[in-house]
């Protein structure tokens, strides 16, 4: 028998890479130090505009073996790039498998309840 998962449940954390600016705030606020972000600077030149420097995300990983589901990262993100997703069956037998990279975090956007994104 299965029960419906409520919309406000803390299943797993999803990342909207397009909204993320690599600002590092979530990684700095996380009490468990479990968010790893790598990025680099790139100069973009748009028609008729002065060149500007943007940050390009290279790696975004959350170690859910350390995460305590406090939600501070989601609260603190100024760009609304992090969300609680309802998907929850992510237990693993090896601690290394608890580290989820951006590909997984992006997939879980599909499990974010409507109205929160």
């Amino acid at each position: 028998m299965t029960y419906p998962v409520p919309d406000n449940s803390r299943g797993i954390i999803a990342l909207d890479e397009n909204a993320c600016t690599s600002c590092m705030l979530c990684a700095r606020e996380c009490p468990d130090w479990c968010i790893e972000i790598d990025s680099h600077k790139q100069t973009v030149q748009e028609e008729g505009a002065r060149p500007r420097v943007v940050h390009v995300l290279d790696r975004f990983a959350i170690d859910f073996g350390l995460c305590m589901w406090c939600g501070i990262c989601i609260e603190v993100c100024p760009f609304d790039a992090l969300f609680w997703a309802k998907s929850y069956d992510h237990a693993a037998t090896d601690p290394a498998q608890m580290v989820h990279e951006r590909f997984d975090l992006r997939q879980w956007l599909n499990d974010v309840p409507e109205g929160t994104t």
Partner: peptide, 27 residues
Amino acid sequence: AKQWPGAKDPGESDADLAVPRRRRAKP
């Protein structure tokens, strides 16, 4: 034992941490 992930600034990766800087964010 663990390097604080927040020591990196926006636009930096682990390799950039090798470059000494006067002001680094501290946990």
